[in-house]
Nucleic acid binder design. Structure first.
Length: 371
DNA sequence: AAGGCGGGGTC
DNA sequence: GACCCAGCCTT
């Protein structure tokens, strides 16, 4: 092994053994717990994951207990964490582990990689961290660290670059130290070799880092820009119950697939253009017509507030309109619609944007004007 | 190869 | 605001 590679690996592991953070998933060797942590950590920061991880393994301590749990309860434990297909895929995968592998997380690369929601990074992480197998686990941190140290100019937004860096990373794994080395790489990326203003003076491998020696820390890694999110205007109906439904609000469940699958929300629609918003009245009448086509006869009353939410790929600008249901006593609700009040609010799973709106409404801060 | 898929921290 | 995070799946 060439000189700088050996230097990199040994100094990095030495640093990690001294500086490693005490994280919940570093206190266990249970492959299932390692697995859960790696799924939660996909595109999600450590500090965000910690409370979710603790609650999740407390409620679902084993593969079997997760496999047998109601999907709704699994989703509830994921609420607010984002990328909800991770939760669905994880439960589907543990059920496969029960059915095909007797409830034991498999140790073969092909079997681990075949599990739902387990891609190249997560497979490498499970195999190395749980079983100490010399497999690379290349995430955004690792691509950044290795691009800088070795002066790699490849665009890390390209899939081919990850494949190349996996080859580099695999060669660097010290014999018998796959778990520590892979975690050390990511730890360095998270704590020292950060995207902006890296802490080079305290870096354990600074003396042979290509980027630092050339003063190019800010130029590496090379990464092409993502497309900006698409802006969308949406109108939502906050339909207030009357009589025995006083204090309740009409909500609906989203479809089984796609964005925010199976989560609950205020009924809302994408506006065809700004023209529906020429006036409050035109917005109200447009909303009434659209919902009438879905079999929901509402009377929109007033514009009572706005909510914004940015996803990776789109930005929602939601105008919230107060409304009532026509002939509420005899009205038949379309499928997937439901009345919800403060008392049963927590029995449903909400994306954050609607959790905020409804929480505000129920505590009286988001007050519709009365007809 | 490109786009869909959340939410939050940081600068 | 922009960027990006212990990425994966579908097309």
């Amino acid at each position: 092994m060439s000189n700088n590679k050996h230097y990199f690996s040994s100094e990095l592991v030495r640093w990690y053994e001294k500086e490693r953070r005490d994280l919940p998933w570093r206190r266990t060797r249970d492959p299932y717990h390692i697995w859960v942590s790696e799924i939660m950590l996909q595109q999600t920061r450590v500090d965000t994951v910690i409370p979710y991880f603790n609650r999740f393994v407390d409620r679902f301590p084993s593969v079997r207990q997760l496999a047998e749990a109601p999907e709704e309860e699994v989703l509830k434990h994921w609420e607010g964490l984002g990328y909800y297909s991770r939760a669905r895929n994880l439960q589907s995968a543990v059920r496969e582990v029960v059915d095909r592998y007797g409830g034991e997380v498999p140790r073969l690369k092909e079997e681990v990689s075949g599990l739902k929601g387990v891609g190249p990074y997560t497979a490498g992480a499970i195999l190395s961290i749980a079983f100490d197998q010399p497999e690379p686990a290349v995430d955004g941190n690792v691509m950044r660290v290795l691009s800088r140290f070795f002066g790699l100019e490849d665009d890390i937004a390209r899939p081919a670059t990850r494949v190349r860096i996996e080859g580099v990373a695999k060669e660097l794994i010290p014999h018998g130290k796959a778990a520590d080395f892979n975690q050390a790489l990511m730890e360095l990326g998270a704590m020292i070799c950060t995207p902006k203003s890296p802490a080079c003076p305290t870096c354990p491998v600074r003396e042979m880092c290509s980027a630092r020696l050339q003063g190019r820390q800010s130029e590496l890694p090379v990464k092409t820009k993502a497309k900006p999110p698409k802006f969308v205007l949406r109108l939502a109906a906050l339909v207030e119950g009357t009589g025995i439904r006083s204090g309740k609000v009409l909500v609906r469940q989203r479809p089984k697939t796609g964005l925010l699958a199976r989560m609950w929300e205020l009924p809302h629609l994408e506006a065809p253009g700004q023209s529906v918003w020429d006036s409050v009245e035109s917005g109200c009448s447009w909303l009434e017509q659209e919902f009438a086509q879905e079999g929901l006869m509402i009377k929109a009353v007033d514009h009572i507030g706005d909510a914004q939410h940015t996803f990776t790929h789109l930005h929602w600008n939601i105008r919230v309109m107060s409304a009532v249901l026509q002939a509420e006593e005899s009205a038949i609700l379309p499928p997937h619609y439901q009345w919800v009040g403060p008392d049963d609010f927590e029995n449903y799973v909400w994306p954050n944007v609607f959790r905020k709106v409804l929480t505000q409404y129920f505590i009286g801060m988001y007050k519709p004007s009365k007809p």
